[in-house]
Design a protein around this nucleic acid. Structure first.
Length: 473
RNA sequence: GGCGCUAUCGUCUAAGGGUUAGGACGAAGCCCUCUCAAGGCUUAAAUACGGGUUCGAAUCCCGUUAGCGCUACCA
């Protein structure tokens, strides 16, 4: 049974890199009919916050992919501690009584002194027990083999064969002096207990994996298959951080910018993974069907944002593609929410609403555009752009538009064809170019000089509103 | 410093010994057109550097450089 997990720690918002890791795990599970597990790695009590946990769930829920099982490490501390002490009993770990925050001067880096604190590793079991019984604080460390150097090796599904000498692996901590398990300990103990078969995570864990292999072996467990993902980085090559790069690193930014969840998922998938053909816009089913670990590449991917524009242009393009190709009905609830949030009235008729959305979405890039550029389609109060004002200020334009309004009032029919016929008739009758009336109409009806076909505008707004807006110029 | 990883247009990527090094975003231009989008066509734009191996290297090997990661009682 294939089982994967996404294990965020609640020390910040949901980072877009984490979101991508979640997505790749999800895709791998779904592609192979496996189980997706969400595990909250909250063993660092100092840094965990409820706010962070909430925002992670917010982000994951927005992505809309879901998961099958959910765990929280803080509920499983006993399991981690037991695993740690099993390592101690079997000689794979020892107590280190060195006071916290020890020396980190350059001298300690020489001659392998950084590998472990001298003396502590060789304490006899009796003395170790005696000092512990005396209440002396200690951290439990993994006893990395030193007698003879050997190579810890594994085959990463993305980075291929990996190997590292034990001479380059320090005696890492398993249990803190406050008794809390460290990330390495808790993570491995849980991966074993939860029967995780594949660990798909960021490349920043690639070198940690050697330590994890040691833990798995020490516990007599078969290590899972590993697949490390290239990292998402900033245009200057540095890693994405909230402090340095601001909101671009948080998935909620894209939600608030009016992205469709799926299009953002699609975008993230294209960073560090390729279906190997030229497909870019893909549905969830297509993504699931095509996703393989072989398609993941090894170099970090730049999220192409700038100070002027925090959104990657390709993400925006992809969003516009999904926006205009999705079935309209699927868009309606999201558009409704955006309009309501902006305090705009939402048309009662679902059909009329759907038609309006369908026509105007072709020019929009985000959901938020419906409330901004789309305002004239839903509300009567809207600004006239300078360009549209210029169209109205063409000689005779206002009078012609009012006349058009008058004539349309008399017309029995009110369709794109009938409006166009009337407009063109008026234009030739007065010897003006039809464009004056066409562009003037668009300006009068929407306050904009750009947008859908002017004739479509009339039917979208309806007879009443159209004529009223023509008369008002 | 030590160890590990990576290097194709500005960005995301394809090609994994033989291609005019392909596609997409973005940029520029043209077509279409009632405007703006969309769409179609076109253009500019890349194998980090130096050595090998080979008839032939973006592709394999070595070195250099650069970037990233780990080197915490963070994850």
């Amino acid at each position: 049974m294939l089982r994967v997990r996404f294990a965020p720690s609640p020390t910040g918002y949901l980072h877009i890199g984490s979101a991508r890791t979640f997505i790749f795990n999800w895709l791998y599970a779904r592609h192979n009919g496996g189980t997706m597990i969400l595990r909250i790695d909250d063993t660092d009590v100092e840094r965990n916050t409820q706010t962070s946990l909430d925002s992670i769930f917010d982000g994951l829920e927005w992505l809309g992919l879901g998961w099958d099982e959910q765990y929280r490490q803080s509920d499983r501390l006993e399991l981690h501690r037991q695993a740690a002490w099993r390592l101690f009993e079997s000689g794979h770990a020892y107590r280190d009584f060195t006071p916290a925050g020890g020396s980190d001067d350059d001298k300690s880096r020489e001659e392998g002194a950084w590998l472990f604190n001298a003396g502590m590793r060789d304490l006899t079991r009796d003395e170790s027990d005696r000092r512990a019984a005396g209440g002396e604080p200690f951290v439990l460390r993994f006893r990395v083999p030193r007698d003879q150097t050997r190579h810890v090796a594994f085959k990463d599904s993305v980075y291929r064969e990996q190997s590292k000498s034990t001479a380059d692996i320090e005696d890492f901590a398993l249990l803190r002096s406050n008794g809390m398990p460290t990330y390495h300990m808790a993570s491995c103990a849980d991966d074993i207990d939860l029967k995780i078969s594949h660990i798909i995570r960021g490349q920043d864990h690639l070198t940690n994996t050697f330590k994890h292999i040691l833990i798995f072996e020490g516990l007599g467990a078969e290590p899972p298959q590993f697949a490390h993902l290239p990292l998402l980085i900033a245009p200057d090559g540095s890693k994405l951080s909230k402090r340095k790069h601001g909101p671009v690193v948080s998935v909620t930014t894209y939600r608030d910018a009016g992205f469709l969840p799926h299009s953002y998922v699609n975008f993230l998938c294209l960073l560090g993974w390729s279906p190997k053909d030229d497909r870019e816009q893909m549905s969830r089913e297509e993504l699931t069907g095509r996703f393989t670990l072989e398609g993941i590449n090894r170099s970090n991917a730049v999220v192409n944002f700038s100070e002027a524009d925090p959104i990657d242009p390709k993400a925006l393009w992809l969003n516009s593609q999904h926006l205009r190709s999705a079935p309209v009905e699927e868009l309606l609830p999201a558009v409704r929410r955006v309009l309501e949030a902006a305090g705009l009235p939402v048309p009662a008729s679902g059909e009329e609403f759907a038609r309006t959305v369908d026509v105007i979405r072709a020019r929009f890039h985000t959901l938020n555009d419906f409330a901004t550029r789309g305002r004239p389609y839903f509300a009567g109060d809207f600004e006239l752009s300078p360009e549209s004002l210029a169209k109205l200020n063409e000689p005779g334009a206002r009078e012609l538009l009012r006349e058009l309004g008058k004539r349309l009032e008399q017309k029995a029919e009110f369709t794109e064809q009938s409006v166009e016929a009337e407009l063109r008739a008026l234009a030739s009758e007065r010897g003006v170019k039809a464009g004056v009336l066409i562009n003037g109409s668009r300006a009068a009806l929407t306050g904009q000089h750009v947008g859908p076909s002017a004739f479509a505008l009339f039917t979208l707004l309806g007879r009443e509103r159209s004529i009223a807006r023509l008369q008002k110029v």
